[in-house]
Amino acid sequence: MNQDPATTAEGIAQAITAFVSKRVGADVPADQDLFESGLVSSLFAMELVVHLEQAFSVQILGDDLKRDNFRSVRAMTALVLRLNGAGHATGA
């Protein structure tokens, strides 16, 4: 189960990159600032929240709901890993 792509950083980053690139119609390097580059509108930002919650079975609440966590593929990956990690720790 260590191989489940939904739980490795690489797998998560790949899945998020695929989703974002498809929606913005452009290649998206993991470090690119999506807000600064104008690729992500405020409405799409919320779609990212909903998408991450559904795709990775996490809940993004409270202080985690801030733009910085969604600024780049790398930032989103870190968020999902952290939220997933917390779930696994209690479930293991």
Partner: peptide, 11 residues
């Protein structure tokens, strides 16, 4: 509920 989360997200 989602819109309030959206508002929070966008500061």
């Amino acid at each position: 509920t989602q819109q309030m989360r959206h508002g929070q997200l966008m500061g």
